[in-house]
């Protein structure tokens, strides 16, 4: 079985559990919706302010909801004590990592799929004027988040205060990703749309993803040992 099919099996296992219980998807999506609602009360709904603030709201919602989903996805392995089984499976660790990361990225994209239309609806943010670059930036953001997040969530699996430590560790590392994502979105919904800037930040996201995928793959094996 090739590496990608093995990774696909691991990802599909996680997603199938999720499809049956729908626990993480529902809680994450609802949480993201709540964040957007809180933001729409917290900030003035003037369109000039919305153009500047909506990108930040979108990516903050993704960061917060994503962290919750990430912690929960790995808690499931801990509760059933299945992480050891997963690591003992006759497939390379790389496949375990990739499978986990793919499943997380899908969950994060679900959050983005809920948060983006809600922001457009509640605040009138013109998010759908350039859908293609927006979607690409969200997909790249989800990949980067899932890649860094999976490594640290897996390392923190047995730690008592993991719920607090996960964001403490993740956010300093993810700040470039979130700033790039926010800047890309901002360039897309500005009064004068700046596609050059948007594509600059999207390529920034692509390079970030590539670099951190390499580091994650390199460190996953030495960091995640039961």
């Amino acid at each position: 079985m090739s590496l990608f099919r093995q990774a696909g099996r691991v990802a599909w296992k996680d997603l199938r559990i999720e499809l049956r219980s729908r626990e993480i998807v529902y809680t994450m999506a609802f949480f993201a919706a709540l964040i957007v609602v809180v933001f729409s009360f917290a900030f003035p709904r003037d369109i000039r302010i919305v153009r500047g603030a909506a990108p930040g709201m979108l990516w903050v919602a993704i960061a917060f909801a994503g962290t919750i989903g990430l912690g929960r996805a790995f808690d499931r392995e801990r509760e059933n004590d299945t992480m050891r089984a997963l690591l003992l499976a006759p497939i390379p660790r790389l496949a375990v990592f990739l499978g986990k990361a793919i499943a997380i990225a899908v969950l994060v994209l679900v959050v983005a799929a809920v948060g983006t239309p809600l922001l457009a609806l509640f605040l009138g943010a013109p998010l759908f004027e350039n859908p293609l670059p927006l979607v690409i930036s969200l997909v790249l953001g989800a990949i980067g988040f899932a890649s860094v997040g999976s490594v640290f969530a897996a390392t923190l699996l047995k730690v008592r205060s993991r719920d607090v430590l996960l964001p403490v560790v993740l956010y300093p590392l993810l700040i470039p990703l979130f700033v790039a994502g926010t800047s890309a979105t901002e360039a897309l919904i500005a009064e004068r749309v700046n596609l050059d800037a948007a594509w600059y930040w999207i390529s920034f996201l692509g390079i970030y993803d590539a670099a951190f995928l390499v580091v994650s793959i390199w460190t996953f094996e030495s960091l995640v040992i039961e």
Partner: peptide, 15 residues
């Protein structure tokens, strides 16, 4: 981070 603190922190430093 308890017993996995050293690994965890080393990973954070590398990242």
């Amino acid at each position: 981070a308890g017993s996995s603190a050293d690994r965890m922190a080393a990973g954070l430093a590398v990242f």
